[in-house]
């Protein structure tokens, strides 16, 4: 009996610990920002924070975060400030229930700007040396996209301004959806000719003509991401009449069902015509009495 008790106690402790701790791999913890934090980056981060994070985390220093389990916490407190930039970056990127992942919502540059905003509340914070210059200064990169219909592959060529191919660069592919971007495949690295080829699925619903908006992105270590959007007819043609076309109960008011409009207005006009008649009679009575 005692043994079981101990076991249960242990189990509870393990569960509680699991609920509280959020493990970050050591290499991710050590990651440093490629961007030099400044008041400017902090300001940009604030805009992003207010749009994406405030609803749960509240306003930093105010402690008005939502009362959720696990607690979101206030970014200005030690709970956040004692973590490395890398750890914060990892957590923003991957998320955990109920915190969403921001991998596909915010670019790497934007995520670093949010961290820069957090650090602006910490007087003692000293930014570690900015990550060493990456293999590519992404701002100078140009992307060309070619659809290879025979093999159903999307060929992306990365080159610099002098049209020299960029090799060993990480490229990501997304399809724009209603509520965010859907990543296609994994991040791929360009070959010696600066080329990557993405397998493209057949079954992604497109618009009336099958068009999809593709986003090709190079995540630069320096934070100056390069992104290109192209519209290609790679999706399944979806040409359904819009749901808002016919008259229906759930449609806008001028597309409400005819029977409803008739019923409502006939009843209202019917009842009120009697009321107006009665008021008219009263007015008439008053007038006649006045004449006498």
């Amino acid at each position: 009996m005692k043994k079981y008790g101990l076991l249960i106690l242990l189990l509870i402790i393990v569960v509680r610990l699991n609920a509280q701790s959020w493990e970050v791999p050591d290499d991710k913890k050590a990651k440093v920002s490629p961007v030099q934090f400044s008041s400017e980056t902090a300001k940009k981060g604030e805009v992003i924070f207010l749009r994406n994070c405030q609803s749960c985390h509240g306003n930093p220093t105010k402690g008005n975060f939502a009362n959720l389990i696990p607690s979101p916490g206030d970014p200005a407190t030690d709970k956040f400030q004692k973590q490395t930039d890398g750890a914060l970056f990892y957590k923003i990127t991957t998320g955990r229930s109920p915190m969403p992942q921001f991998k596909d919502v915010l670019t790497e540059e934007e995520r670093w700007q949010v961290i820069s905003y957090f650090r602006s509340f910490n007087k003692n914070y000293v930014q570690p040396p900015v990550a060493s210059a990456s293999k590519v200064a992404a701002k100078q990169a140009a992307l060309t996209v070619v659809w290879e219909a025979a093999s159903r592959k999307l060929k992306v060529t990365a080159s610099d301004t002098l049209k020299r191919s960029l090799k060993g660069v990480g490229v990501l592919l997304f399809v724009k959806r209603y509520f965010g971007n859907m990543q296609i495949g994994e991040e791929m690295t360009t070959n010696d000719s600066g080329i990557v080829r993405f397998d493209f699925p057949k079954d992604i619903p497109g618009d009336k003509t099958g068009n999809l908006d593709l986003i090709i992105r190079i995540n630069s270590e320096k934070g100056d991401d390069v992104q290109k959007t192209v519209r290609l007819p790679l999706g399944v043609i979806v040409d359904k009449p819009p749901l808002t076309l016919p008259r229906a109960m759930w449609n806008v008011v001028w597309k409400s069902p005819v029977w409803l409009l008739l019923a409502y207005f006939l009843v209202v006009i019917g009842v009120w015509s009697f009321l107006i008649y009665i008021i008219y009679q009263l007015v008439k009575m008053k007038r006649r009495a006045g004449n006498v």
């Binding site: 009697f274 009665i278 009679q281 009575m285 008053k286 009495a289 006498v292």
Partner: peptide, 21 residues
């Protein structure tokens, strides 16, 4: 009182309108 004096006309009107209501 809208100049009520209890004439048959007035009485009829009030009765009719009350009935409608």
């Amino acid at each position: 009182s809208l100049g009520w004096s209890g004439t048959p006309e007035q009485t009829a009107m009030i009765q009719k309108c009350t009935r409608i209501l």
